[in-house]
Nucleic acid binder design. Structure first.
Lengths: 254, 254
DNA sequence: CCATCTTTGTGCACGCGTTCACAAAGACAT
DNA sequence: ATGTCTTTGTGAACGCGTGCACAAAGATGG
């Protein structure tokens, strides 16, 4: 970004690889923990261990930020916390709306990690009129009719979708039309959005299926060494596939 | 391709790239939707659009499965649903335990997508004695003292951790010791596990921070074209860092 | 049976991300 | 000051994942 200050090798925001960006929050968390224990400096080796990554990767990641460590010593914890926070945009306050206040929406609303990380729940929105006015996590739920107004009044640019799958795209469209440019989607749907809008997806069902794949593979290999066949456990070979479920958000039936 | 058609070209489980495995559930969902609409066949182009991926990628993904499409026609929906389900291990029943029945744990327990995808909630476990016996989603919560017994009695190999961060590693260790080999972790902690155990992490806080990064970048660029400086919005430049929050699961305060 | 047309399966090239390994930078002791 | 020792920052090699572009397969119609 050209932010500029003369030197400042970094600030090449656009130069920061996605993979690195995705790890910065991890480093930040580990650093925050160190900071709370008043640890003044940390080596790449130590921090990498705490974050669960390779130390060379961590150093390279930091090099994109232009973060300066001190050779022979390590990194200054406080300085790094500040730099990463700044890079991630956490030094400012991000108002967030949560749409769809079912089980999951409520869980999200109650999540304490919001406020302490630069995020603020500006509003809770649900389509059910019966929910309107009812407080969840101390915040009154508002009806989705007022979605546009809420977004605009609060200058919201980040929206969280926790509605059933069927409603997700419509909600998404309205959020985008109202000015939201970043969306965190918990509904099991592929959202289509115009250029310039970022979408991230969290999908419990997918995560579990990936685990099942590996689990099956482990079982299969085990069996293979003794048997040569399939997992011993359940040989239930239904054609599977039954209830239509593609209609509620991962993790939350309305 | 080499697969030689002795039928059964697949089963090269170990040959399937991770990236492909991660997309299979996506394809499966799209295919299930088609199946429900009784669509008999689908082209890679159509299916790719529905799943939000590139059609060449999709074809290559399927080629790892050894799935057979028909040139000039496309893929048989039902056949593909079965093949992918099978490959993912969803034709068998996976008993799952959820540890930590707070807001999120309850939301997970209520998630309808479990049963319909080959997963079954075998038990809900919480450390709070006051929760014991209390039914959540129709399943009585059990005390964590009985964790090992529950795992063994039910032959559970997949565990979901939705506890506060402080308890996660300990719970993880007990799960692993009891025989769990796949863990879905919602707590904001890096879990360390022995070889052979898979861990997948879902972390709301990280997802939001990644969105914030891009959001800030957008704002910065916008401003740059007119101004040259930083986002106009909030120039709040605190040293940031405040409440200790690293102590509850992403999305769920006990 | 042959021609045409559609759609798959994949060889290939490119770019990103990871990791190694090491030179340079600096702290610290003497 | 000078030497030693630690730890960073990064050049370079490698491997994975992606996407293009096309040949081969097979359906379909004449």
């Amino acid at each position: 970004m050209a932010t500029g200050r003369t030197h400042r090798p970094a600030t090449r925001s656009r130069g920061i690889p996605e993979a690195t960006v995705a790890r910065l929050p991890l480093y930040l968390r580990a650093l925050t923990a160190l900071s709370e224990r008043s640890v003044p400096t940390v080596s790449s080796e130590e921090l990498a261990a705490a974050a669960g990554v390779n130390s060379a990767k961590l150093r390279k990641d930091f090099s994109y930020l232009g973060s300066y460590g001190t050779r022979g010593v390590g990194y200054d914890v406080e300085y790094l916390v500040y730099q990463i926070s700044r890079e991630l945009g956490l030094t400012q306050d991000w108002p967030v709306v949560i749409v769809g206040i079912g089980n999951l929406g409520a869980a999200l609303a109650n999540y304490g990690g919001f406020a302490s990380r630069g995020f603020r729940v500006a509003a809770l929105i649900d389509a059910d009129p019966a929910m309107a006015g009812k407080p969840v996590a101390g915040i009154p739920v508002q009806h989705s009719d007022d979605l546009e107004k809420i977004i605009q009044d609060n200058g919201v640019s980040i929206g969280v979708i926790a509605t059933p799958a069927g409603a997700a795209q419509q909600v998404c469209d309205r959020l985008v039309a109202a000015g939201v440019t970043s969306i965190l989607n918990f509904a099991p749907t592929v959202l289509s959005v115009p250029d310039g809008v970022d979408v991230r997806k969290v999908d419990l069902s997918i995560e579990l299926q990936i685990l099942a794949f590996h689990e099956q593979r482990k079982a299969g290999e085990e069996a293979a060494s003794a048997d040569g066949a399939l997992p011993a456990a359940a040989a239930r070979s239904d054609s599977a596939d039954q209830g239509p479920d593609g209609d509620m958000p991962a993790v939350m039936p309305a």
